[in-house]
Amino acid sequence: MHRYTPSAVSTVLTYLREYVTKLESTLQQAERVGNAKEAERFRKILVELNEYEHDTLYPLATQQVTIDLDDGVKANYPKFGAALKKIPGLEAPSD
């Protein structure tokens, strides 16, 4: 958390998009050689990644979430919602 900046989620989004591009290329290659099983596996992965980008990562990147290290993990972690794995005990603090 000490290295986090509000643009960090955008950086992750860029890496995700690059990865998706590579997977799409691999999918096309599997389709060209007629490997239907492998092609279907890549299609499922791409659908999941595109949904994650659309529903979770992109909206978070546009928010440019800021954190205050003095607030601690219990206050900052929930700000990232579904983008991070749920950890018991780190629910959003009630005001």
Rank of each mutant, 00 (worst) to 15 (best):
A75L: 08
P88R: 09
Q28V: 02
Q28F: 06
I45K: 06
L57P: 08
L16H: 00
L69S: 02
Q28N: 12
A30E: 11
T5L: 02
S25R: 10
T5W: 03
N50A: 09
A83K: 01
K74C: 09
L69P: 08
K37V: 05
A39S: 02
S7M: 02
K22S: 10
Q29F: 12
H2K: 15
S7V: 00
A61P: 14
A61I: 05
M1H: 10
I67F: 01
I45D: 12
T62N: 14
V12C: 05
E31H: 06
V33A: 01
P88N: 04
R3S: 09
L84T: 11
F80A: 04
G89F: 10
N50G: 14
Y58E: 15
T11M: 10
K86D: 01
I87D: 01
M1K: 06
P6F: 02
Y58V: 09
N35D: 15
A83P: 03
K44M: 06
H2T: 08
T5C: 04
L23H: 03
E38Y: 12
D68N: 15
R32W: 10
F80G: 00
A82T: 09
L27N: 01
R43I: 09
Y19C: 06
L46Y: 02
D71R: 11
M1D: 14
Y52L: 13
R3E: 13
N76E: 08
Q28T: 05
A75N: 03
V65L: 14
R43V: 11
P88Q: 04
E38T: 11
Q63C: 04
V73W: 14
E40R: 12
K86A: 08
N76S: 02
E51W: 07
E40S: 14
E18D: 15
A30Q: 09
S25V: 03
R3L: 14
Q63A: 15
E91Q: 06
Q64T: 05
L16C: 01
E31G: 05
L27E: 02
I87Y: 04
D70K: 14
F80E: 09
D55S: 11
A75S: 13
D71P: 00
S10K: 13
L27W: 00
N50Y: 08
E91D: 15
A83W: 12
A8V: 06
E24R: 15
V47Y: 09
K22Y: 06
Q29K: 08
Y58M: 12
H2V: 14
A39N: 11
Y4W: 07
T5H: 12
I67G: 05
Y58A: 13
L49Y: 07
E53R: 14
A75F: 07
K22C: 12
A82M: 11
Y15G: 14
E48I: 13
Y77G: 01
A92V: 07
E51L: 14
Y15E: 15
R17M: 03
V12K: 05
Y19E: 03
T14R: 08
I45C: 00
